[in-house]
């Protein structure tokens, strides 16, 4: 029973973190119909950012978010404004290719700068664990989980309650109408992408806190983001949280019972299954029924 319990707790904690990785990806996809293949790379950039701050200034990864969040927001803003806005109206494979190019650029840039060695942001509390009835939970995991929940909720509040959040939602629903209402869509898109990038980077910081990373794992995080976004429904932030937890649990349980790397196949299995059975996600509304009078 204990291994199962341990796996369950781990799965949930990892799921919360994955949700933070994916929530921005889902937002970008939902609002501007761009699948950002560089998303994982941006998260890993955040991981290196925090790691570097910790290495050279001794800054705690949690505290470093004060720097990481605004800087990565600006990075995302500029990427959208200067690059992705140029092809937003193109057939989808164009944006896929563009962001893939971006991913190659970032990942290889990181490889050149930091080599492919596995890194990890070691703090004073890295090795401390909380024992709870036979289940051991590292404090770092708890912190990462709590922070992930916090930032996801903050994002929901931002989207729900602020003027910019309203603009983002409105633009996602109907760009032409939003334009007619006087919204600067280019700016709104850039803010959306900047927000997504900042959150991904924050998730990256936490990834460094709880485990190891290298530029090469970026693609894996993108793929997991995709699974979570699909599971949760496009642009649905609570859905992303739910999707993250589901994926985290499925992976943890899978690792318990399946041999080798077959556990990786679970994510893809879930993905393909959900796409085929319920392409609108677990919480989303069915898209294809919207074609009533098309």
């Amino acid at each position: 029973m204990t291994p199962f319990l341990q796996a369950t707790v781990y799965g949930l904690l990892q799921g919360g973190l994955l949700a933070l990785v994916a929530v921005g990806f889902s937002l970008v996809w939902g609002v501007m119909n761009v699948v950002n293949l560089a998303h994982g790379a941006l998260a890993i950039t955040g991981a290196y950012f925090s790691w570097q701050l910790h290495e050279s200034l001794g800054l705690d990864p949690v505290l470093s978010l004060v720097v990481v969040l605004p800087v990565m927001f600006m990075v995302g803003y500029v990427i959208q404004r200067g690059l992705i806005n140029l092809v937003v109206n193109a057939p989808i494979w164009m944006t896929l290719l563009l962001t893939f190019g971006l991913e190659a650029l970032i990942v290889n840039g990181l490889l050149l700068a930091f080599t492919g060695d596995f890194r990890s942001t070691r703090t004073g509390y890295s090795t401390n664990t909380l024992a709870l009835g036979g289940v051991r939970i590292p404090y770092a995991r708890l912190i990462a989980f709590g922070l992930s929940l916090l930032l996801t909720v903050a994002l929901v509040l931002f989207i729900r309650n602020t003027k910019m959040g309203l603009a983002i939602r409105a633009t996602g629903m109907d760009r032409t109408a939003a334009r007619l209402m006087g919204m600067n869509v280019r700016h709104v898109y850039a803010v959306t992408f900047g927000t997504a990038t900042a959150l991904a980077a924050a998730a990256g910081s936490m990834i460094g806190l709880v485990g190891t990373f290298t530029p090469v794992v970026a693609g894996g995080y993108t793929l997991q983001s995709f699974v979570i976004a699909v599971l949760g429904g496009l642009g649905n932030m609570w859905g992303a949280l739910a999707g993250g937890l589901v994926l985290g649990l499925a992976t943890a349980w899978g690792a318990l019972y399946l041999s080798g790397t077959l556990v990786n196949a679970i994510a893809f299995g879930i993905l393909v299954l959900v796409l085929i059975v319920r392409p609108s996600g677990l919480l989303g509304k069915p898209y294809y029924e919207a074609r009533a009078e098309a």
Binding site: V35, L96, L223
Partner: peptide, 11 residues
């Protein structure tokens, strides 16, 4: 669209 692209990627 994306759904097909990524479903095939997943496969």
């Amino acid at each position: 669209g994306h759904y097909f692209a990524i479903a095939t990627l997943g496969v």
